[in-house]
């Protein structure tokens, strides 16, 4: 495509996300990746309407960013459009949450829709990944309370959870569940159980609430790993191509960000994405989308991506705080 336009251009592009790549391409002359917006999981059907703002690609101007750090590279996005919060119903994941000296291990609910419900194997994988990545998040012998919700767990699975927790210096103490069978299995295994009726048990409503505490991960996010978190995400390590981080808050990667990163996934445009080496497949903030330039910049410095009235901007971390102060707010 003709994406190698050497002139720094602000793309004023107000086409709507379209599932038809050809149509999109026509509306989007400087955008080599035609179906960017259509692929955005945050652009759920409610947002695919005409008034939904479309963010465009980082243009070839991006290649200039180390040279022109004072004039951060522009990416196109309609200036007139105000991004509407994404009504995200993110696929829930296994989560740890500290609360009053205990650790809550929250399993995703067992929805009966086949597309949404995670299998035990997937839950198990997620649990191990989180345990591998979070070893400085808790002290040895921290008690863990398992929030099982409506998930059916047999005694074997409960034992597996207890075993893997104790391998990581954690003790499974108590189980909250709304399923009778799970409660019986837990009681048989000698754990204390609290059974709640399905309606009243601890289900944090994730939209429109205060953000969860930041998720701290010390790991390499490898291809295929998706981290979703209703707060900020801090990664000590690299995020490889094929990985994705979807956070309701900010995303900070102390390493190379090469995968997909979405900050402010529930609609907050003031969220930011920071990385020591920002070479993402795609970055999204709220429902603005930007992708990496075709020609990679020669040199990488720590950078910050944020939403400006013109769309997603990227600026050097060293210049960022000054600019942020001067501009006040970008709303």
């Amino acid at each position: 495509m003709n994406s190698e336009i050497p002139v720094p251009t602000v793309l004023s592009d107000s086409s709507q996300p379209s599932p038809d790549p050809a149509n999109n391409l026509a509306n989007n002359p400087a955008n080599g990746l035609a179906n960017d917006p259509a692929n955005n999981p945050a652009n759920n059907p409610a947002n695919g309407s005409a008034q939904s703002p479309l963010a465009a690609a980082l243009s070839a101007a991006e290649a200039n960013r180390p040279a022109e750090a004072n004039l951060p590279a522009e990416v196109g996005s309609p200036a007139e459009a105000t991004p509407s919060p994404v009504d995200a119903t993110p696929q829930p994941q296994v989560r740890f949450k500290g609360e009053g000296g205990r650790l809550l291990l929250m399993l995703p609910p067992d929805t009966d829709a086949e597309s949404m419900g995670l299998t035990w194997y997937e839950i198990w994988q997620q649990l191990k990944q989180r345990l591998n990545a979070g070893d400085r998040f808790w002290q040895p012998n921290t008690p863990v309370h398992l929030i099982g919700r409506d998930r059916l767990l047999d005694s074997r699975q409960l034992q597996d959870i207890a075993d893997v927790l104790s391998e990581n210096g954690l003790q499974l103490k108590r189980i909250y569940t709304s399923r009778r069978q799970t409660a019986v299995a837990a009681a048989t295994a000698g754990l204390s159980v609290e059974q709640h009726p399905p309606a009243t048990h601890l289900t944090p409503a994730e939209a429109g609430q205060a953000l969860a505490e930041p998720l701290y991960l010390q790991m390499t996010l490898r291809s295929g790993i998706e981290i979703r978190h209703p707060g900020s995400v801090i990664v000590l390590g690299d995020a490889n191509p094929g990985s994705s981080i979807i956070a309701d808050g900010d995303i900070i990667v102390w390493g190379s960000l090469r995968g997909v990163a979405q900050a402010g996934a529930s609609g907050n445009t003031r969220c930011m994405i920071m990385a020591l080496r920002l070479e993402p497949t795609q970055i999204r903030i709220s429902d603005f989308v930007a992708r990496a330039p075709e020609v990679p910049p020669g040199e990488y410095l720590p950078e910050v991506a944020y939403v400006s009235p013109e769309g997603i901007r990227i600026t050097r971390a060293s210049e960022f705080s000054r600019e942020w102060m001067m501009a006040g707010t970008f709303e």
């Binding site: 990944q129 591998n132 390499t220």
Partner: peptide, 14 residues
Amino acid sequence: RDADRVVGLLEAND
């Protein structure tokens, strides 16, 4: 890319 995915899966399988 596939090798990266496999490394992640191996890590998760101890």
